[in-house]
Write a protein that binds this DNA or RNA. Structure first.
Lengths: 127, 127, 127, 127
DNA sequence: GTGGTCTAGACCACC
DNA sequence: GTGGTCTAGACCACA
């Protein structure tokens, strides 16, 4: 079972995980994804919870449904998820970063050093 | 009335706003802050909600209460809020930011160049 | 309990009923509507079913939510529901009517007579 | 491949399409129709789905089966489909249409004038 | 097999 | 009190 952080609801965490799968090209545009039941078993959650995830992603047009067959990655899912990430980065994360740097007195040098540290940790994990 | 985002609970948004007041030195250490009732009216919010905010901030020892008189900014509030916000920013928001940067193929150098640019603009405005 | 027709799912029937309330001006723009629990009791269905209705209407921006207080009719709900009805009338119902009149050999006179008949029935009910 | 609407089940959409063929006299009473397999290939659909369609139409006695030979349009199919579609149109779709007309404040006279206009245009095209 | 709907009941944060 | 989430389990239509 994937570990669920406390803050976010489970169905949104699963959605985020699936969008990561798209970004990481584990799932490609047009490809079929596991059925609701399969995902429910694999994630050790209730099928209704997975259904919420799939509905959520379907409304965002990241996945779509073929009746009686299953859910599929949308033809433009990768591009769309990327665009959405970019949008939220520019609209939210970047302003937050700048505000934090100013009010919390964090220097560019500090950011750079923290980035390199996180880079290193990432490499260590992948070895 | 301040505009509330949908995602976060109102009482936490108010708390964040008050901590910003401390960081921006609108409110100084030791200073008296508006009563629960005043804040509730000004924010167009239920007094119970403001009470939650004040309780929350009191538990974090950012403000303290003098019975029958009102609420006051703690003597070390600025320093404490600064440290706590910085810690939480580095622990929680920066990792997300770095992850987004990697999927969007943005380098920290680009970010910092943007920061310097926005910094300069800010200075020009204030002159 | 309202009578549910077999064809449509319950939560959509409730949604339709609520849109009728808006069209009939039983509920006005900005007004609070009964809570999920109240509606569930009144309609004799499960609260989860009502929640689906409310989510559905919220996505269509017919109603909106104030945290911890309840659901409200959107400021432009009437206009929006009307526009949507008009759209579906022009795009779907009218072409269907014309097609039916041609392929099923229904004459304009017949339509007119049926309309008057339904008019009369409506008047009889309201007496 | 014919385009399937999301709302209705595929096998019923195929059935509707076949009944249209009868009404439009593309298929005449007593005539042989394509086999399940042929239809499935042409419609790009699972043969099981077409089987459902054929069973459905057979129960309605619109088509009948000669063992080992194939499916045929019933001798009175045209008349029967006509009557049945008309009945269901009047019972189900017209009431909805009339209701929409009342909420949109559209008179039947307006509708019929639109109909005559579209009729004329159709004739002009076919000349 | 697939998804979709519904119920019953629980627990939570929030206003 | 309000809504939101989650579970368990059932039934259905559909491919």
């Amino acid at each position: 079972m994937m570990q669920f952080k406390e803050q976010k609801s489970i169905y949104l965490q699963i959605a985020g995980h699936m969008e990561d799968n798209i970004l990481m090209k584990v799932w490609k545009n047009g490809e079929r994804i596991p059925s609701i039941r399969e995902t429910a078993i694999q994630m050790e959650v209730n099928p209704n919870t997975v259904m919420r995830t799939y509905n959520f992603l379907q409304e965002k047009k990241v996945i779509f449904n073929k009746r009686g067959i299953g859910y599929f990655i949308a033809p433009d899912a990768l591009e769309q998820v990327l665009a959405e990430k970019k949008e939220s980065f520019i609209q939210q994360q970047l302003p937050e970063l700048f505000k934090a740097m100013r009010t919390l007195l964090i220097t560019p040098e500090e950011i750079l050093s923290l980035y390199k540290k996180s880079d290193k940790e990432l490499n260590d994990e992948n070895q």
